[in-house]
Amino acid sequence: MKAKVLLSLILLCGGLAAPVARAGDAAPAASPPPAACELPSYLLTSESRLPKVAHAVKAGKPLDILVVGSRSTTIPSSESSSYPARMEANLKEKLPASEVVHVSVEIQSKKTAEEAASTFVKLMEAKTPTLVIWQTGTVDAIRSIDPDEFRSAVTDGVVALQKAGADVVLMNLQYSPRTETMISAQPFLDNMRVVAQEHDIPLFDRFAIMRQWNDQGQFDLFSPSRGPELAKQVHDCLGRALAQFVIDAAHLEPAQQQN
């Protein structure tokens, strides 16, 4: 018996030592963007499809993307480095040169999912995007909205967007280790996953992605730095990942992807 316990303790210690070594290896790679952006492929793939995006690209029609987000969609005072702008640049790079890509951003500052969803009908009358990337959950988590209400609000929003004829991608919360003791993200992450599953739409798991970067030492998200550099790098990587995610979910031809 004792030997068994001892063995498990040894295994435990061995296990603990392993990530130390890994973190050490990863540290030097942190500076140049592309290496830092690296992600395991399962975070960038989805079983759900984006048929309208696929159709638009194949038919050579312009690809109009609307990002509905909140304050974490942008970086204060450097709009062009925020993830929607970076995604646009990356999509233009990866899609055929003839493809017209246009990304617009709608910021719903300090609005819960329910408040945001209530604007969707009007919003979709004004713009007719091929794809809407709806990033939500943070405000709801901060205000600790009832997760059931949150889920039905997200469901309503998704249905409204789909009715207006757009493909939808859901994007969840940021991974924010510093406020982890104060904001409970999990119920909101879970419910967004449920809605995505129910409606068969891709979920861009921003939370898992950022946590992966933090855990692997690519970014130190605990950093208290006041400068915008970290935010710019993270948004650059998010933009790249999002572009890749959209291309993958729309099943665009590999030939087009390699450009």
Binding site: S72, P76, T138, I142, Q174, S176, T179, T181, I183, A231
Partner: peptide
């Protein structure tokens, strides 16, 4: 203790990546 911690973070932490989360 929680109040002490959150007050400390509120005054020291100004990472622009997380302006939204600071709404807490």
């Amino acid at each position: 203790i929680f109040l002490a911690e959150i007050s400390y973070v509120a005054t020291r932490f100004e990472n622009p990546l997380y302006t939204e989360e600071m709404g807490i």
